[in-house]
Amino acid sequence: MRLSRLAAPLCVALAACACAPGTSEQDGRTLTVFAAASLTEVFGGLGERFEEEHPGVTVEFSFAGSSALAEQLVRGASADVFASADTATMDRVVDGVGVSLGPEVFARNTLQIAVPPDNPAGVGSLDDLAADGVAVVLCAEEVPCGAASRTVLEAAGVAVEPVSWEEDVKAALTRVRLGEADAALVYRTDVLSAGGGVLGVDFPESGEAVNDYAIGVVDGGPEPGLAAEWIALVASPEGEKVLTDAGFVLP
């Protein structure tokens, strides 16, 4: 405990000294990004790009559940950038630590119906999920995708009796991939990450439950300059393409 308290300022001081002589000298600098787990692939790819453009800079990621990351930040963890899967979680960091340059919604994720490639139950709409003999799995209401599923089903006025309430979105997706379920409500990005294993079926009511991904520069981070550049990269046409390729919708 005592050691880390001493060590933290020391590191900051050393970093400041290293960058003092010349602004073009970027050797040994590190950008720390805390991001929601669903951004792992997208940000991972952008990280390599960023390091190419900024020789000598290392991007360090911490991917985890948004709320877990927010909790760490509020309790004193050091990061330059925070990207959360919903605005409510971002608000906690805004209140607890402070965020500059944002927070800004940079991507959206909506639900899609995942069906096996041959779509044996012929699911084409939310209504079809309520049909007899269609084995549907939903996320349990205790987890975020379950809450979202409930919102869209209620908005559509469709009463679905699932065969199982899955413990998370990946488990629901797996049921469809294995052909054990005829359909599941999951995020668009999950459908895309499954490759050809499942098909995504859009439905108009998906707009009722939209997950807004927000990003901002965390106050007190050691590299506010690099952090701003990272956010610029995410917002650039290149960043947008990576996001949409992964299934995200732009705001």
């Binding site: 799995v137 349990a140 065969v163 199982s164 309430w165 899955e166 413990e167 488990a171 049921r175």
Partner: peptide, 9 residues
């Protein structure tokens, strides 16, 4: 159980 039988109250 959760893997094979799923979860339904």
């Amino acid at each position: 159980t959760i893997m094979f039988a799923g979860n339904f109250p």
